[in-house]
Design a protein around this nucleic acid. Sequence first.
DNA 1: CATTGACTTGAAGTTGACTTCAAGTTGTAG
DNA 2: CTACAACTTGAAGTCAACTTCAAGTCAATG
Lengths: 134, 134
Amino acid sequence: MERLLDIAEVSDRSGVSPSGLRYYEKRKLIVAVARNGLRRQYEPAVLQELALINLAKSAGYSLDEIGSVLRRPGATVIPRDVLVEKAGSLEEQAKRLVNLAKMLRHVADCPYEDHFECSRFRKLLIVATKVTNC
Amino acid sequence: MERLLDIAEVSDRSGVSPSGLRYYEKRKLIVAVARNGLRRQYEPAVLQELALINLAKSAGYSLDEIGSVLRRPGATVIPRDVLVEKAGSLEEQAKRLVNLAKMLRHVADCPYEDHFECSRFRKLLIVATKVTNC
DNA sequence: CATTGACTTGAAGTTGACTTCAAGTTGTAG
DNA sequence: CTACAACTTGAAGTCAACTTCAAGTCAATG
């Protein structure tokens, strides 16, 4: 029998505020499996779900999109090709971020005041935005 | 003498709506260099700026942050170490996205209904969130 | 030279993701 | 067994980033 975590502990360990946790519950991203009095109690696994939620949010997904994935178990499965496609666009976005990082590193050492006048900068920008999808 | 672009053309070519362009102008992210009657006219270079804005937005930067970079030319320069640090966190985020992509590819081929029950999935999640900063 | 349609403005409205609030409840420490 | 800190609720408020609106302007077309 696994120990349950109360909302304060989940908040501390996940970095999500208690009101945020309640909000996620309302949006059906997570569930509180029990109450201690009025206080929500969570399974430890919720920490993993929250880690996934934070990750997906930082990747630009909305809570709706994340929720539709998280609510899947027991429901219909996301088609394989949709998953593979999403993986592909995440990888593209990752490349864009790496290129943006390269731009910043270049700017750090570039003498131009207005970086749009620097040809190297412009080339990096073109590369960085070339992969733009969505 | 370079040809100016009017708002409709900039909107079409950048993917940013006319109202979005006006909003960016109000926020001082871009400038309209002229008017044809009341209609804003832009330098072609604005397309590059908009590409950078879109890129930075997708990387999670707010318009304020982006604007503070874009408004720099002529003003003070961003310290080198700040740039390098930002580059580093972008690269970390890129790694997280790649790991999230790996997770999705795994899920595409994994038989588990509830992926949190799959040990490979959990491992990928731990890896993907390990790099979590900020 | 009158019409039209694409723009203009400032203000108000919307959406997503929360946060804050006021009033109430309750497990636990003293 | 009382007090209190930490939760509870639903509703309202906030913030960023736009969008929509109503009323007006004007370049270009017929």
